[in-house]
Simulated assay, not measured.
Amino acid sequence: MIVVTRLNDSQFAVNPDLIERIHANPDTTLVMVDGAKYIVTETMSQVIEMIASYRAYVLHLARELPPSVHQHSHPQLGLVPPAVSASGDESGDSGNTVPLRPRNT
C-alpha cells in the first residue's frame, strides 16, 4: 500500500496495483480499476516514485525469505507437472504435442 494525501490533508492508503491511470490536470487524480477517483496533493511523479518504491520493497521482502518458506508454505495449485517420456526424462515432449503452424499473413 502507498500512503497519499487528500486535498483536506487527510491521508489514506491505496493499493497501487488497483490504480488504472494517473492524471495531472492540474490536481493529481488517481483513477482506480473500479472507476473510483481520488484527488491527491502529491504530484504525478511523486505517486509514480511511491509505486516504484513499493514494488521494489515487495521484491526485496520476497528475496529475503528463507528457501523453506518459498517451498513449503504454499501448495503449488494449478500447476501441470512436466511431461515424462518413456525413458523417464522430463523433456517436456510427451509425444502428443501438436506442432505450431505459421499464421497466414
Rank of each mutant, 00 (worst) to 15 (best):
M1S: 08
M1K: 04
I2D: 07
I2P: 02
V4W: 00
R6F: 10
R6S: 07
R6H: 14
L7S: 09
L7I: 01
D9H: 08
S10F: 10
S10I: 00
F12T: 03
F12C: 12
N15W: 02
P16C: 01
P16S: 07
P16E: 04
D17L: 06
D17S: 02
L18S: 02
L18T: 00
E20W: 09
I22Y: 13
H23G: 10
A24I: 09
A24P: 14
A24V: 11
N25P: 05
P26R: 03
D27N: 11
T28C: 13
V31L: 14
M32C: 10
D34A: 09
K37Q: 14
K37G: 07
Y38M: 09
Y38D: 03
Y38W: 14
I39P: 11
V40H: 10
V40Q: 03
V40C: 03
T41D: 12
T41G: 15
E42T: 03
E42I: 04
E42A: 10
M44E: 15
M44L: 12
S45Y: 10
S45V: 07
S45M: 04
Q46A: 12
V47D: 10
V47K: 09
V47T: 13
I48W: 06
I48F: 11
I48N: 12
M50K: 06
I51W: 09
A52L: 08
A52R: 00
S53C: 06
S53A: 12
R55I: 02
A56W: 10
V58W: 00
L59V: 01
H60Q: 13
L61D: 02
L61Y: 11
L61V: 09
A62G: 07
R63L: 08
R63D: 08
R63E: 00
E64G: 00
L65R: 07
S68K: 06
S68D: 13
H70I: 11
H72C: 00
H72K: 00
H74P: 04
P75H: 13
Q76H: 13
G78Q: 14
V80E: 15
P82A: 11
A83N: 06
V84K: 10
A86M: 03
G88H: 00
D89I: 11
D89V: 12
E90T: 14
E90P: 15
E90D: 15
E90G: 13
S91Q: 05
G92I: 05
D93R: 07
S94C: 09
G95S: 10
N96I: 02
N96E: 01
T97N: 14
V98H: 04
L100I: 01
L100Y: 14
P102I: 03
R103S: 07
N104L: 11
T105W: 11
T105E: 15
